[in-house]
Structures are given as structure tokens and as C-alpha cells.
Amino acid sequence: MKILIVDDSMTSRMLFKAYMPKDGQHELFEAAVLPDALEKMRKVQPELVILDYNMPEYNGVEMARVMLDAGLKAKFVLLTANTQRTVVDSALAAGFIQVVEKPVNAAKIAALLAQVA
């Protein structure tokens, strides 16, 4: 599965990469800002897009809306340390399939991939 992670924190992106299963079944792409994310979505057409919530300029939910408005389709997952009801509700209303609480670990990523597969 092609997965795009969009997070302005390089620590967070690396943590995700480190805990990804090394089974050769997944290909991970990274972006830190919206223009790069849009370009990668067009280029690699990921099945799954994981977006951080708290980013400069656009939050993860707003970014997903921009992607959808641009006709880019994928399953969206929100990654956030902020699991306030309003954040979770806004993500689900925008069509996100899941909200994963930061920090990620191997078990959280495995559970997410099993759900999406």
C-alpha cells in the first residue's frame, strides 16, 4: 500500500517511518507542507494519507478538504496529540476514517494498517 504522511515535524515523520512494518508491503512517502503533499498525491496516488492536525497555515482537516476539492481521492487518517472532541468530530465530519493519537508506536501503526487493508 502506498502511504503518504503529511506532518511538518520531522521527528514525527521519522517516528512513523521507524515503526512502519518492514514487510515490503508498504511504501511510505513524506511531505511537510501542503504544496508538497498535493504534488506527491498527484504523482504517487497513495491509498492512505495520514495528516497531522497541528500544522502551520492549514491544519490536517483543512488540508484534506483542499485535497478533496482538488479531486484527489484517498483514505484519510488524522494524527494528533489533541484528541479533543471538537477535533475528532471535525475530522470524522470531513470524511477521515480514523483519528490516531500521538505519539505513534508499532502497535498503533499495525492496528491502523490492519483496519485500512
Binding site: S9, T11, S12, L15, N54, P56, A81, P103
Partner: peptide, 17 residues
């Protein structure tokens, strides 16, 4: 708001490490 965003991201990073 910009300061909040930068500190909040560093908070997440510090937690991760």
C-alpha cells in the same frame, strides 16, 4: 498562534523521544 504551533509541535517531539 505561530508560537503556539511551534511549541506544540516541539511538545509532541519531546514526547516522542
Amino acid at each position: 498562534d505561530q508560537l503556539h504551533q511551534e511549541f506544540d509541535t516541539l511538545f509532541g517531539g519531546a514526547r516522542a523521544v
